[in-house]
């Protein structure tokens, strides 16, 4: 049986990796080599040419924005969303768990119910709100609407319940106020949860598609993911596939590195935020 398991896994890995391999090969060829069907399956010699072309100047026929700029935009968007979500969720969960105050449950349910409203459903009215606030083509418009997250608030809430009462009691006896307790006790204890959430939310932010597609009109505000879409023009032959595929590789590397390097926290975060 063991041999069978290895066979299954090897096949699985090959199927999963195949598109990545072909993408990488295509990103090292000239456009003519790709258009000469079937394209070679051994990497060519255009790696440096293609990547420096897209990073500094973009494609020549579709969107002509440099991908370097798009990657900075994606990076800003992913980081602001990840840290923003973590920051506003951890303080609201802290308030909900460690304080008693009127409307506490009301606020909790208000956050809770947002779980049921995926962005895609209310995208057009949200677009109008952002347009009315004058936030089109801005980093605020790209990030703020995606920053409220019920899942992160839940994760922190669950975690705070496991912090022993004695700790809060001791802090209070020593005369520490709530914010002192937050900075010195709660925040250090939450490190693992924060790391786990960071991985999930970074990927969420980096991979956003519909939202940046709608609210960015200037090429200088494009993110990498929508840059690829803008480079694919109608018709197989008109698209510069070698450059599109180089951009695709560049778009995949940062989130893939985050997943692979932070694998332990990623798995923990994934399994815990969802359950």
């Amino acid at each position: 049986m063991t041999a069978f398991y290895y066979l299954v896994l090897t096949l699985g890995v090959l199927v999963v990796a195949f598109p990545l391999y072909v993408t990488f090969v295509a990103s090292t060829l000239t456009l003519d080599q790709i258009l000469a069907v079937p394209m070679p399956l051994i990497p060519g010699d255009q790696l440096i040419n293609n990547y420096s072309q897209v990073l500094s100047a973009g494609s020549t026929r579709g969107a002509s924005a440099p991908v370097g700029r798009m990657m900075i935009n994606s990076g800003i968007m992913a980081l602001v969303i990840a840290f923003g979500k973590i920051a506003i969720s951890i303080i609201s969960a802290f308030a909900i768990v460690f304080f008693r105050f009127p409307l506490r449950n009301f606020f909790f349910w208000m956050i809770f119910i947002t779980l049921m409203l995926p962005g895609e459903v209310r995208i057009i009215p949200t677009f109008k709100v952002v347009a009315d606030l004058g936030m089109l083509d801005s980093y605020a418009g790209l990030t703020l609407p995606l920053i409220a997250s019920a899942t992160a608030t839940f994760l922190f809430r669950q975690f705070f319940f496991t912090i022993p009462d004695e700790l809060a009691e001791a802090a209070r006896m020593d005369g520490a106020g709530p914010m002192r307790f937050f900075w010195d006790v709660v925040l250090p204890l939450s490190k693992t949860s924060i790391a786990a959430l960071f991985v999930i939310q970074f990927i969420y932010g980096w991979n956003q598609y519909l939202w940046p597609l709608l609210i960015t009109t200037q090429e200088s505000m494009y993110t990498t993911v929508i840059g690829i879409k803008r480079m694919i023009t109608a018709g197989d032959a008109a698209t510069e596939w070698n450059l599109v595929m180089a951009t695709a590789i560049l778009a995949m590397v940062p989130p893939a590195l985050v997943v692979i390097l932070m694998q332990r926290w990623f798995v923990k975060g994934l399994v815990e935020t969802e359950k």
């Binding site: 990927i203 991979n207 598609y209 993911v225 929508i226 690829i228 778009a251 989130p255 893939a256 997943v259």
Partner: peptide, 9 residues
């Protein structure tokens, strides 16, 4: 790793 890939990509 494909978890890290955007649906559009």
């Amino acid at each position: 790793w494909p978890y890290a890939v955007a649906p559009a990509i």
